[in-house]
Amino acid sequence: MFEARLAQSAILKKVLEAVKDLLTEATFECSDSGIQVQAMDNAHVSLVSLNLRSDGFDKYRCDRNLSMGMNIGTMTKILRCASSEDTVTLRAWDNPDNIIFIFESQNKEKLSEYEMKLINMDQEHLGIPETVYSCVVKMPSQEFARICKDLSQFGEAITIACSKEGIKFTAAGDYGNANIKLAQTAEADKEEEAVIIDMQEPVKLTFACRYLNSFVKATPLCAQVKLSMSGDVPLVCEYQIGDIGHIRYYLAPKIDD
């Protein structure tokens, strides 16, 4: 049997909102250690890697490893039926055809059950090589979302250049261009407002706006985002999910033709 319970469905609601633009379906790998998802978008340009540790759940039981193929659109619809304060329980039997989502209101007076058919999926796992990144930038997630949104008006791609001085985002298009520079914060009153740059070597990479704008749907999950970059390798854009895990997005760069 598989059963995982969260006291508040808000986290799972936010996770679904953070992946639904990129994925139509995904396999949820459930084991003793927790729930993992690794899935690429249809174009194989981006990859979502989600990790929810079993110890982060209020209750977690997984008698045997399960691979459950889920339709993300349906799952999103189901999660939207839960109030943020509802308790959510995921339940499946061994060799399941279905997964059950159970929402219980705080006062325990409303109990909702949604059963979703699982799908068989061809899995394509990619081995992500261990990489030491030339630049690792931590910055407020809302600021990153704002920059991606603002610069998307000017072009299809954003060039991110990171140096000791700071991080610069540039977009150029037919109607003009724009750039935004962020300096490392000298003194941040609050940790979550800080811009921190850990640089070994300067990096300059270009990425498609449309994927970045999908990644920033994870902004409600965490006040800070971590961007890891090296020359000519995919960007890693990471959001912590409370004490339970993280979501990482990988994005293949655009390179000179």
Partner: peptide, 14 residues
């Protein structure tokens, strides 16, 4: 012009 790469170019199937 820049060309969009895919992840398969960087990551190997496992």
């Amino acid at each position: 012009a820049k060309k969009q790469t895919t992840l398969k170019y960087f990551f190997k199937k496992s």
